[in-house]
Write a protein that binds this DNA or RNA. Structure first.
Length: 824
RNA sequence: GCCGGAGUGGCGGAAUUGGCAGACGCAUCGGACUUAAAAUCCGGCGAUCCGUAAGGGUCAUACCGGUUCGACCCCGGUCUCCGGCACCA
């Protein structure tokens, strides 16, 4: 064994051996209960960053650990390979996106392999591969066949920089989530997926995800945004149609003092046409047109509105109230119209105050609030007033009864609304999955025949970065024949949002090479669901919601075997430098490659797992990395130094009797227990590593004592096993150097002996009035009474309580005795 | 504004069920080894007070209060920071 830890030679050697042996291939036939461990696959940018390293190191330790615990672990990797950067490179440098992407995949795969991650590369997928996107298209066709994919003309979010439309989910604060450009509106005919049909299930099934962070569940819940209430029809004076509104507060119907329509509401024009209000309404609408989406949606924006000269009739009491249009009512939620109850809604209160509108309280908080002169709206629970037959009821019950009254009298009905909108999936880009639809002048929109899939991306396109989808420039692509009638027809030229590609990849991994079907049912049945999914919290809403939606759909049509795809979810924290996110613009990026070059992959893996628990943010520390490197050297030297003693020692050790031996034996079993519990339970890798460090420290202390070679040999062996999931290259080397054959990865995880951990004597704490005064050694395992008796016998304790009145004594076995005394 | 989460030494962080606060590591200081340095090994290291010393006292987990024999942990309130949503009727 060499004197020093030559990580370069060691890591290269074991990488090659693993690859040769295809050590990480798995199949359904292997022994052991299956475990599907998945990390979110990366976009092939060409370079891995610390976030990737952290994400995949967490997964890799878990995978290796579970494998050693006897599980049949599926741990695949692939590429979320469609997307804008490749296309932008094509526009800028004339490289075809396909070449750009495959080169970047190759580069990144090498970097991942350099880290020593145990993937089954035989299942690698790339979403831009026709063998993959064929099935993305197939899923789209299934959606279409069941009426869940439709094309609709609508004002859509348009990013002028990316030159494409965006889903609502991809607009943050009115800015494009990708590039930060303010998003505008365009009227376009686009494809949508009816995710709203799944809103209720996506919401309800969150309940069952007990091993998901509550934070993520809350975010999804808020995003789906379920509101329970009622719709009601308000007749409009002198108009032939009723105005339908949605409210979550039917209890406040008697407090309605005006109505508000969204400016885009279809009734607005007919209601003002030819009248004196037409000109001012036009002016108001024009002004709104010029407002960008950000300004329009800002909460800080002053509420503005306009009376349109019409009145509506309250269906409950016949009261006539004025109709307004205002910038704070949205067309695409509810019915695009509201009843305004300023007494019990903050927004309505603001508006009413500004325009001098009537305020009628109908819910009394019952705390003496002066309802005649309200200074703010009252939105909490209370007792009904000014509400005819409903006076005196609790407002909650009144709401139920009023909603029932509406329903019975044909004035409205109970209703549920979701904030979730249908998913706009058309993108006017080249580098994505073609939408497999054909427009026939006779048959309308027809899906491509399933046997003709995939609809391949054409190669004869120009990348100008302007205007419509680059697919329009292809001579061959657009013209086709109708799959239904065989007549001349045109292909859809938009491609899919890349989020569709990543919404089902976890299913494809179960049978990644299948050319006949999306995946064999038996294989998905065996592997699904994903037992542990790991990724960044930035995907808490979009990716995870879409993936759940796709899986539910595939479940409904008999393909996915599970209702929820991801049983357990871990969202890892960001890697920070100097308290902020690493970014090129800030120039604080630490390159994994450089660090691997200087310290080796094992050191980087160890540090990134040791510095912080996985779900927390991790502050990067260069000196901390050096510390991890020192530790691995220390381990290497320790094992090298022990060889002399352990080489010829027996494999089993007899019961230990010497004190020093007992200490080491205890340290060993304690480490086995702690490391196993910490990895197996809550993924507390940082404390697991601490425990290994303590074990190493104990071994260094022991080395000087009269050594028991057989015990040392066992300790050496267990140390290597415990450390191996974290620093696999080093441990394979040490495993081989200590005379073992085969991969340490294939070994059994060690077990501990509970009897060793139950020590003969334990140190217990003696407290007086809750303050630690003394520490004593007593026999282990004493019951409460025996413990107290033992403590009472101690001279030192009797001195402590001499002359004091003992009121009470509390004993906690193996821990402490607290003596409560009076006086000092 | 609403909804989450978090506040512990110089720093990253431990404390698994209410039971020794600060494990482990980083930084730093001291010692050994060395001609010397690096590396390595050993040791000190929350604050403060008393004591020459051995040793002992007091305070301390953002802040205020409560429950309890005992609180970083549970309860009520306040502050700060981070994240998500944001005119969704």
């Amino acid at each position: 064994m060499r004197e020093t830890y030559d990580f370069k030679a060691i890591e290269k050697k074991w990488r090659e051996r693993w690859a040769e042996a295809e050590a990480f291939r798995v199949s359904e036939d292997a022994d052991g209960e299956k475990y599907y461990l998945l990390e979110m696959f990366p976009y092939p940018s060409g370079k891995i960053h610390m976030g990737h390293v952290r994400n995949y190191a967490i997964g890799d330790v878990a995978a290796r650990f579970l494998k050693m615990r006897g599980r049949n672990v599926l741990h695949p990797m692939g590429w979320d390979a469609f997307g804008l950067p490749a296309e932008n490179a094509a526009i800028k440098n004339g490289i075809h996106p396909n070449r750009w992407t495959s080169e970047h995949i190759t580069a990144m795969r090498e970097q991942l392999e350099l880290m020593g991650f145990a993937y089954d590369w035989g299942r690698e997928v790339a979403t831009c591969d026709p063998a993959y996107y064929r099935w993305t298209q197939w899923i789209f066709v299934q959606f279409f066949k069941r009426g869940l994919a439709y094309k609709k003309k609508n004002p859509v979010n348009w990013c002028p920089s990316c030159e494409t439309v965006l889903a609502n989910e991809q607009v943050a604060d009115g800015l494009c989530e990708r590039c930060g450009t303010p998003v505008g509106k365009r009227e376009l005919e686009q494809w949508y997926l009816k995710i709203t049909d799944y809103a209720e299930r996506l919401l309800a099934d969150l309940e069952g995800l007990t091993d998901w962070p509550s934070k993520v569940k809350t975010m999804q819940k808020n995003w789906i945004g379920k509101s329970v209430g009622a719709e009601a029809d308000f007749p409009i004076v002198g108009f032939d149609r009723d105005l339908r509104i949605f409210t979550t507060r039917p209890d406040t119907l008697y407090g309605v003092t005006y109505m508000v329509l969204a400016p885009e509401h279809p009734y607005v024009r007919p209601l003002v046409a030819g009248g004196v209000y037409e000109a001012s309404v036009d002016a108001f609408l024009e002004k709104l047109q010029y407002l960008s989406d950000i300004d329009r949606s800002a909460t800080t924006l002053e509420k503005e509105g306009l009376f349109i000269g019409r009145y509506a009739v309250n269906p409950m009491n016949g009261k006539e109230v004025p109709i307004y249009i205002a910038n704070y009512v949205l067309m695409d939620y509810g019915t695009g119209a509201i009843m305004a109850v300023p007494a019990h809604d903050t927004r309505d209160f603001d508006f009413a105050t500004k325009y001098g509108l009537e305020i009628i309280p109908v819910v009394d908080p019952g705390d003496g609030t002066d309802l005649e002169h309200m200074t703010e709206s009252f939105v909490a629970e209370g007792t009904m007033i000014n509400s005819g037959p409903f006076d005196g009821l609790g407002n909650r019950e009144a709401g139920e009864r009023i909603a029932a009254h509406l329903e019975q009298n044909g004035l409205g009905q109970k209703s549920v609304n979701y904030r979730l909108r249908d998913w706009l999936i058309s993108r006017q880009r080249y580098w994505g999955t073609p939408i497999p639809m054909v427009f026939c002048p006779v048959c309308g929109w027809v899906p491509e025949k399933e046997e003709n899939l995939p609809v391949l991306l054409p190669t004869d396109v120009e990348f100008t970065g302007k205007g419509e989808s680059p697919l329009t420039t292809s001579k061959s692509f657009r013209e086709t024949v109708c799959p239904a009638c065989g007549g001349p027809a045109e292909r859809e030229i938009d491609t899919m949002d890349t989020f569709l590609d990543s919404s089902w990849y976890y299913l494809r991994y179960t049978d990644a090479r299948n050319t006949d079907e999306i995946f064999a049912k038996g294989r998905a049945d065996y592997w699904m669901g994903v037992d542990q999914y790991i990724g960044g919290v930035e995907h808490a809403i979009l990716h995870l919601l879409y993936a759940r939606f796709f899986n539910k759909f595939l479940y409904d049509i008999g393909h996915s075997p599970v209702r929820e795809p991801f049983t357990r979810l871990l969202t890892q924290g960001m890697v920070l430098k100097d308290g902020t996110k690493m970014s090129k613009t800030l120039g604080n990026v630490v390159s994994p490659e450089d660090l691997v070059e200087r310290f080796g992959a094992d050191t980087v893996r160890l540090f990134i797992l040791f510095a912080s628990p996985p779900e927390k943010e991790l502050e990067w520390s260069d000196t901390g990395v050096e510390g991890s490197y020192r530790f691995l050297n220390r381990v290497y030297r320790l094992v090298a130094g022990l060889r002399e003693v352990t080489r010829d020692a027996p494999d089993r050790y007899e019961a230990v009797t010497e004190d020093a031996d007992k200490e080491l034996s205890f340290a060993m079993h304690a480490a086995i227990k702690k490391v196993g519990d910490d990895i197996g339970g809550r993924f507390n890798f940082n404390t697991a590593i601490s425990a290994i460090m303590e074990f190493v420290n104990a071994l260094y202390r022991y080395k000087g004592a009269a050594a028991n070679p057989a015990l040392l040999k066992a300790a050496e062996r267990n140390l290597i096993l415990l450390l191996s999931p974290f620093t696999p290259h080093l441990c394979e080397e040490l495993w081989a150097e200590t005379g073992h054959t085969g991969f340490v990865y294939d070994e059994q995880w060690p077990t501990y002996d509970a009897d060793v951990l139950a020590r003969d004597t334990v140190e217990i704490v003696v407290q007086i009035n809750g303050k630690v005064k003394e520490k004593l050694r007593v026999s282990g395992g004493l019951g409460t009474d025996d413990l107290i008796a033992a403590v009472n016998r101690e001279k030192r304790v009797r001195t402590l309580i001499a002359g004091k009145e003992v009121i009470r004594v509390i004993g906690v076995p193996n821990k402490l005795v607290n003596i409560v005394v009076k006086g000092n």
